[in-house]
Design a protein around this nucleic acid. Structure first.
Length: 672
DNA sequence: GAGCACTGC
């Protein structure tokens, strides 16, 4: 007989609502019927409907994991894959990695016993490289498909192709209301019947099923005339809520760090004028650039007699959920990244959000009780918003996507079945770049072995090329490190607000005059010799400990790729001594970088700005770059981005003009 | 003098 102790440890934590009470429970039969009968099921349901946690368990119970088959559930974000797996494992009373597991880059918590597997959609695409028909899976559920991330879109196209060869495969797409028909139309193709009753739209291919969420009503309030300054209006609204509305925390959506800091300052200043006995206001910032500890404040319970005001970027729209929010203030704007194929430059600008985004933001007010959403725009402006945000695949540099598709054996990109095809110009521009890198031939086929190998490595094509030619420059070990560090995307250093001078002096300790890439190499080498077991060493040097640990993992993974290609990595080279040797080695590294980044070259002007090779554009070294306050002649850079009025280059390294002509003669002959 | 959010065996 089990002791009381044993019994009590097997109880499900009361934290979670018993599964049977979730709205999805009522739909169990019809869900299982649809999945049994149709190859494709589109599930419409909001957060809280239980689709992500319950549906996989229903499928498992109904026998979809017999004969060793697995149910896959994909997520656009790593944290979602891990947290949902943990929760489902608790409900099924097993450990993560047993019947329920997850798989994300660098973390595979699955075993031969795993029947339900949560993974990022990028990860499932990686699996398709090895197992093109994804034959281990009986059901693949693509969750949060309405977010239309790059990987989700590529995955959906790939699944449509796989379905033709595997009619027994079941595909479940989970989506918000607005896009459900698009997904069904996509999979049903010619069988889609626009004139049919809603219940028959998808012919014999699929059906849509709706699960209502566990949402409370949210009152919508619009401005009657447009706001001249939405930050000012937002702050005013915060105080109106604080003085006139019952208790409950406020979530304010703005576009970026600068606006958030301004708003928080205004709120703090004005809070002093509140009546001494009135409840106090606690404004808190939330954006991705904050450290994890700084972000944690928003999740702490609100102190007594206080109202929390969380001032956030888009991160709180889908990625982060905060309890206790009753009031949402929506500026109606978000910063979005877009790629301009004409200039090859990424832009980051504030643009009006879509109706779908506005609805999602408002929904954040109704998670625990009825709420209110104050929209800082008119109803007319809302009507004019686009229905949905332009999918990433239509506003991104497609070079990495094209490499990925080609690695999956999809050669004719133009004929690939995209949910929404990207503009031809984006495809042409990407193919031009891949051709100049030698990754594809005149028929746009992957070259052997260079293009094939580039496609297999999890790196941006320019860096992939650099890595694969590194052995001929005798600097493979160093490039492995540089590639890993650049992948961290500027998270190497931690920023401390108001501590700019000390940040700069710390960076100077590791500085290499030739530029950011060699400085990264220095930082990494210092980290593995001095700081790998010592997070204090990182704190003292304003370095991001977790980011550097990640660099170690990425480097290890890249090294395994290279070794699989039969290329030896000589790690003794990086510890060579002597000034002459060092300078020679640094030159080799700069030459090697140029073989991949020749299209990202610029010349410094007397005033310290840069001009592109064609001469058209004025570029500024990003303030985080070593080249921000140094002299150079020619440079190559990793990234170019336009924000506001200025165009910045980041991760910049000095080169000689002669390198460009030596390593990219064709590219530069045309442009001279 | 400064950057929304994600991701990859």
């Amino acid at each position: 007989m089990a002791s009381e102790q044993e019994l009590s440890t097997s109880f499900i934590p009361a934290l979670y609502k018993p599964a049977a009470l979730l709205p999805i429970a009522r739909h169990k039969k019809s869900l299982l019927y649809l999945v049994e009968k149709y190859p494709v099921t589109i599930v419409v349901g909001q957060t809280g409907s239980g689709k992500t946690t319950q549906l996989p368990q229903y499928l498992d119970q109904a026998g979809w994991c017999e004969d060793g088959k697995i149910i896959a559930v994909t997520q656009p974000r790593r944290v979602a894959a891990t947290t949902v797996a943990t929760r489902v494992a608790e409900e099924m009373r097993c450990k993560v990695g047993e019947e329920v597991g997850y798989s994300i880059r660098f973390e595979d918590l699955t075993s031969p016993a795993t029947r339900i597997k949560f993974l990022t959609d990028g990860m499932l695409l990686r699996e398709a490289l090895v197992d093109p028909l994804l034959s281990r899976y009986s059901v693949i559920m693509v969750d949060e498909a309405h977010e239309r991330s790059l990987s989700t879109d590529v995955l959906l196209g790939t699944l449509k192709k796989i379905r033709k060869k595997r009619p027994e495969l079941r595909i479940i797409v989970s989506s918000a209301t607005l896009q459900a028909e698009n997904f069904l139309r996509f999979f049903a193709g010619e069988e889609y019947q626009p004139e049919a009753e809603p219940a028959d739209l998808g012919g014999s291919v699929g059906r849509i099923i709706s699960l209502e969420g566990r949402m409370y009503p949210v009152d919508m309030l619009f401005l009657d005339s447009p706001a001249e300054d939405y930050i000012e209006r937002a702050v005013k609204t915060v105080f109106d809520i604080h003085t006139q509305e019952p208790e409950g925390d406020v979530l304010l959506f703005l576009t970026g760090r600068e606006e958030i800091d301004t708003a928080i300052q205004l709120i703090s200043e004005r809070a002093v004028t509140l009546h001494p006995k009135a409840p106090s206001l606690l404004p808190l910032p939330l954006y991705a650039g904050l450290t994890t500890e700084q972000q944690m404040y928003v999740f702490e319970p609100t102190p007594e007699n206080t109202r929390k005001v969380i001032v956030s970027t888009n991160i709180a729209e889908a990625s982060v959920t905060i309890d206790g929010i009753v009031y949402v203030i929506d500026s109606g704007f978000a910063k979005l990244r877009a790629y301009n194929p004409k200039t090859g430059i990424d832009t980051l600008t504030a643009v009006p959000i879509s109706k779908a985004s506005a609805t999602q933001r408002a929904g954040r007010a109704g998670r625990t009780k009825p709420g209110k959403c104050f929209r800082l725009y008119t109803q007319q402006a809302f009507e004019q918003m686009p229905a949905a945000t332009v999918p990433e695949i239509q506003r991104s540099n497609l070079a990495p996507v094209i490499m990925q598709l080609k690695a999956l054996g999809i050669d004719n990109i133009v004929r690939f079945d995209f949910l929404t095809p990207p503009p031809a110009e984006l495809i042409i521009r990407a193919l031009e770049l891949l051709s100049s890198l030698g990754a594809v031939d005149d028929y746009a086929k992957l070259t052997k072995p260079l293009g094939m190998r580039m496609a297999e490595i999890a790196l941006d094509p320019m860096m992939a090329k650099v890595l694969l030619v590194a052995p001929s420059f005798n600097c493979l070990s160093e490039i492995l490190t540089i590639a890993a560090m650049v992948t961290l995307q500027g998270t190497v250093w931690v920023q401390h607000a108001g501590d700019k001078r000390s940040a700069e002096s710390h960076r100077r300790k590791f500085a290499v005059e030739e530029g950011d890439h060699l400085t990264y190499l220095n930082v990494y080498q210092a980290f593995v010799t001095k700081g790998k077991k010592d997070s204090k060493w990182c704190r003292d040097n304003l370095l991001n400990y977790r980011a550097l640990l990640r660099a170690v993992s990425i480097r290890g993974q890249l090294k395994r790729y290279v070794e699989r290609f039969g290329i030896q990595v000589d790690e003794t080279l990086s510890s060579r001594h002597g000034a002459a040797d060092l300078s020679k080695q640094q030159e080799q590294i700069r030459r090697c970088l140029t073989t991949g980044y020749f299209a990202h070259a610029a010349k410094m002007q007397p005033d310290g700005t840069f001009k592109t090779v064609s001469g058209g554009l004025t570029l500024h070294a990003h303030p985080t770059s070593l080249m921000f306050n140094r002299k150079a002649d020619w440079v190559i850079f990793h990234e170019i981005m336009q924000t506001g009025e200025k165009t910045y280059i980041r991760d910049v390294t000095k080169i000689e003009k002669s390198y460009l002509l030596e390593y990219a003669p064709d590219y530069y002959r045309v442009r001279q």
